[in-house]
Design a protein around this nucleic acid. Structure first.
Length: 666
DNA sequence: TTAGGGTTAG
């Protein structure tokens, strides 16, 4: 039998089933296929196509169309066909209608339908219950669950997942145990792949390895190991409960690895901070028959952005082109973000211009990228273009726009945009918006206005706001306000060494060494340890990491010798080490030595040493760049003729011909 | 006919 004949026979049998279900005479002996109705393929005349399908008894096709279009109008039309006598539709069709109403967003219609039904089965309850759960009405979902006369696995898995989705995972686990008890009493199979994976999600949410292991045993006993979702949920549980090793073991043992399990396992490494292993697994994926998709690419690109490894990011971008990834998907925005976070804002800009339909994420990435890469005016230009495009900015876009104003030192413009968030765009100010505006004002030395804004905030200022204020106080040496900001930070996060160090540096700049000593003692008493600064650079696809005074690199001797030579030349050009940035009250020469071997200086020196003349140097640091390194890199860029880009925890600094893109405003 | 795992911007 040819494929066409097979299709026709299948359609006919379905047609006959529908007719039998609807108890109506057949309109003709040879039914047309749904594709005979061209209007059924269009979205503009959904009700006409529903009419056409229902007239010929294609009810299930009509439901499919409703769901595809998510059209409430179409669902209501279908309802009117089911109501018209002499139709006597079976419960199945009514259940599908409840489902369609839920998917089209009308729980009122779904409930009405449910209440009108002459006979309700378990599926009717399950469908409406899932509808309430998805709409966020946990109470009504629970009420329905209690009313179900005979519960099946659908009922249990829905209610277990429902409680977890609404942040009540402990109750989910209690329900799972209740299910086991009730099913054991009825001698029925006690768990299936849906209830098991939902219960696993609950034990993951409460971070209970004990519960997770118990469910793992149920899975083995019930022989559910062949299901990809169960394996993935199991692996997720182990990873989130702290055992990435067990998560990987489960993944490796899985007999049914699909693209989702691969993507999730790679993501687990990233979440655990083990990005290199995540990238390794991604590469390994290419030796299997499972092909990565946009979710995989977006996750890996995000890790490349965090690690600032453009070489790997480009490799991922290349894979995306080869597999024909949709240039309008969210993964395309992740490509743009990767280029921007790797300091290649020019490439990000070109990529953006080639996007057919950039979404808000792409616009926001580009705007924030320009802001962080020392081109705030371009950020503001693209903000204007965004408004012209008709896409509405959201609160994250405004963080980028406001930070552009901060980097450009545009105080009045920043305040104007800050006010427009509420007045023009009718959005609520977030703490991030307040942090930006306080950053803007305090960097400009307008502390009175900054304090006014802080005192008028409807919410408690967060650590980012106080840290911005403290940074402004460091620039303008405002000791009084610095103390207030630091005290607030000590309350919020007493373990963060950066606050102590910044405050100590402010006192050190003012020569108040007794205060510096007090802070040092406070750090000792509280057991606060400075987060070690580390910098890294990618050379020939290999990442080289440096710590302060690090001599573990195989080329350490050459790097130090090269740095010493550079130092001499820099001094000849007028460089004076700025020892204000050293916390401890030590001799000047010792301070100078401490400065000379900061991780970022070692990474930059290695980059210049290991790459041919003219190559861009891109260094990344986990903390903020120190002030002395900032000055030193200006000299180094001039002496060596190299462009040096440093991405610190806050922003990018592009050093070229003795200047920095931040204009020393950081 | 109804239920479970992966996603991008500060």
């Amino acid at each position: 039998m040819s494929g066409r004949c097979q299709l026709r026979t299948r359609l006919f049998s379905r047609f006959a089933r529908n007719l039998a279900a609807a108890s109506v005479p057949a309109p003709c002996s040879c039914p047309p296929s749904p594709s005979f109705f061209p209007e059924a393929e269009t979205t503009s005349c959904s009700t006409e196509s529903i009419d056409a399908l229902c007239r010929h008894g294609f009810f299930h096709e009509a439901f499919d169309q409703c769901l595809r279009l998510r059209s409430l109008k179409a669902a209501r039309r279908l309802h009117s066909h089911l109501r018209s006598p002499p139709f006597n539709p079976p419960t199945t069709l009514f259940n599908r209608l409840i489902y369609a109403y839920c998917k089209c967003g009308s729980l009122v219609d779904a409930r009405k339908m449910f209440d009108e039904m002459p006979h309700r089965d378990t599926c009717s309850f399950n469908t409406l219950m899932a509808g309430y759960s998805n709409a966020g009405d946990l109470a009504e979902a629970c009420r329905l669950f209690d009313e179900i006369p005979i519960r099946d696995h659908f009922s249990w898995s829905s209610i277990i997942a429902c409680y977890t989705h609404h942040n009540f995972p402990t109750q989910s686990l209690e329900l799972y145990r209740r299910m086991l008890r009730e099913m054991a009493a009825e001698n029925s199979k006690y768990s299936n792949r849906f209830t098991a994976s939902s219960a696993l999600a609950a034990s993951t949410a409460v971070l209970s390895l004990r519960h997770g292991r118990e469910i793992h045993c149920h899975i083995v006993r019930a022989g559910l190991e062949s299901d990809a979702v169960v394996w993935s949920a199991l692996s997720d549980m182990y990873a989130k409960c702290g055992s990435i090793k067990n998560a990987r073991q489960v993944f490796d043992l899985s007999s049914d690895q699909d693209v989702v399990s691969w993507t999730a396992m790679i993501g687990r490494y990233f979440d655990a901070g083990r990005r290199m292993e995540g990238l390794e697994l991604f590469r390994h994926m290419f030796s299997t028959c499972v092909r990565p998709n946009d979710f995989t690419f977006a996750g890996v690109l995000d890790a490349c952005s965090e690690l600032a490894v453009e070489g790997l990011g480009r490799e991922v971008h290349g894979h995306m082109i080869r597999v024909g990834s949709d240039p309008s998907s969210f993964a395309a925005s992740a490509v743009l973000h990767m280029y921007s976070k790797c300091g290649n804002i020019e490439k990000a800009n070109i990529f953006f211009e080639r996007m057919l339909k950039p979404d808000l994420v792409a616009w926001t990435s580009l705007i924030s990228g320009f802001a962080q890469n020392g081109q705030p005016r371009k950020a503001l230009l693209y903000y204007d273009l965004l408004l012209e495009s008709g896409i509405r900015p959201d609160h994250i876009t405004f963080v980028g726009v406001l930070s552009a104003c901060v980097h450009a030192g545009l105080v009045d413009k920043g305040i104007e945009i800050f006010n427009s968030i509420k007045e023009k765009f009718e959005l609520r100010h977030t703490t991030d918006h307040y942090s930006c505006v306080v950053d803007l004002l305090s960097r400009a030395g307008r502390f009175q206005k900054a304090e006014e804004i802080i005192n008028g905030m409807p919410m408690k200022p967060d650590k980012f706001l106080w840290a911005s204020l403290l940074a402004g106080c460091r620039i303008h040496r405002n000791l009084k306000l610095a103390k207030r900001a630091a005290e607030s930070l000590f309350d919020i996060e007493p373990e963060n060494a950066a606050t102590y160090v910044t405050l100590a540096n402010i006192y050190a700049s003012a020569g108040k060494w007794d205060e510096v000593e007090k802070i040092r003692r406070k750090m000792d008493e509280r057991g606060v340890v400075k987060k070690p600064g580390s910098s890294w650079i990618e050379v020939k696809r290999k990442v080289h990491v440096f710590l302060v005074g690090d001599d573990s690199h195989p080329l350490a001797k050459q790097i130090y010798a090269f740095l010493e030579k550079l130092q001499i030349k820099m001094k000849e050009e007028g460089y004076v080490p700025d020892t204000n940035f050293v916390l401890h009250d030590v001799e000047e020469e010792q301070k100078e030595n401490n400065l000379s071997y900061h991780s970022e200086k070692l990474a930059v020196a290695f980059g210049i040493f290991a790459t041919p003349p003219g190559t861009f140097i891109r260094v990344f640091k986990n903390l903020r760049i120190c002030g002395d390194c900032h000055t030193a890199f200006k000299f180094i860029s001039n002496i060596t003729g190299r462009e040096i880009i440093v991405r610190d925890s806050n922003r990018f600094h592009k050093f070229k011909n003795g200047d920095c893109s931040c204009g020393d405003y950081w």
